[in-house]
Design a protein around this nucleic acid. Structure first.
Ligand SMILES: [Mn+2]
Ligand SMILES: [Mn+2]
Ligand SMILES: [Zn+2]
Ligand SMILES: [Zn+2]
Lengths: 141, 141
DNA sequence: CACGTAATGAAAATGAATTTCAAAATCAAT
DNA sequence: ATTGATTTTGAAATTCATTTTCATTACGTG
């Protein structure tokens, strides 16, 4: 898998070591398409690597974010979620306030308008977060 | 001031009491145009009401949000900010990653496109947060 | 293999936010 | 104004996500 190669490359370039724990976390995380809480990921990794500690999961997620392979999601749940990046494609989210379902969307017009907003305000844009809250098709009514 | 009347009305309707502390916090907060951290607000209120406790500031902000007179802002700073609502006008934010400056913007096209995105995904929209991160005119370069 | 360095994990620490609880304040009914 | 039921307050304790500490273990270059 190419993402794992990228992670190995990132570690090497930074003079960091490849370890069984890091590799297990990265390869499990990167092959899923999911918005993980740290707790969820910790419990999944426990099955593969029973001695793993929370600190290592936190530390490895930080490295994945720094390497550009993961992004942080803050959905006002009181904790952070992390998701593997989707092949260089940025997207935003809808979050169901009842069941917690997370739906992804991509809208180039919105992205373009955000760039214009920033330019008009003489602001150099680096990234953004757009989260739509409400009720999914199964939870509404 | 009308907002303070609304707060008094909210308290009365919910069978809650009007207290010197609540009234001082609400009237100070509602007349400012600022994105307050709880700590900032606490220190400002201390000047007016030296015996105030953090818990009362937190509790009053919660009431202000519930009454629709304040909104929570989460700018990935590790804590929550609160701002008085602007006369029924929704807006979003740009946040400078260097100096922390918060710039407001309003873009009806983006808002409309968000509504369309939600409709296409059969999602009942209640609210949204859109935060653009980058560098303000003074901090870029 | 050996050594210097980095990583791990359990436990402690941190920090924002909430809860607890005894004392004080509010307010509707007298 | 006085009462008294109920709510609010503030200091301190608690909670919970996340970070840090530190002794031990693992990595990887030579
Ligand atoms: Mn996603
Ligand atoms: Mn604002
Ligand atoms: Zn739902
Ligand atoms: Zn700036």
């Amino acid at each position: 898998m190419n993402k794992e190669k990228n992670f190995q490359g990132y570690l090497h370039d930074k003079g960091l070591k490849s370890t069984r724990q890091r590799d297990d976390i990265a390869s499990f995380f990167l092959q899923k398409d999911k918005h993980f809480s740290v707790e969820e990921l910790y419990h999944e990794i426990k099955k593969i690597e029973p001695q793993i500690g929370y600190a290592t999961v936190y530390r490895t997620l930080k490295l994945l974010v720094e390497s550009g392979l993961a992004t942080k999601c803050q959905f006002s749940e009181g904790f952070t979620r992390f998701e593997p990046v989707h092949e260089g494609k940025h997207h935003d989210h809808l979050v169901c306030l009842k069941c917690g379902k997370i739906i992804e969307f991509k809208n180039d017009k919105i992205e373009q308008l955000q760039i214009e907003v920033a330019r008009e305000l003489d602001f150099e844009l680096t990234n953004h977060k757009c989260v739509l809250y409400g009720y999914c098709s199964r939870c509404k009514d």
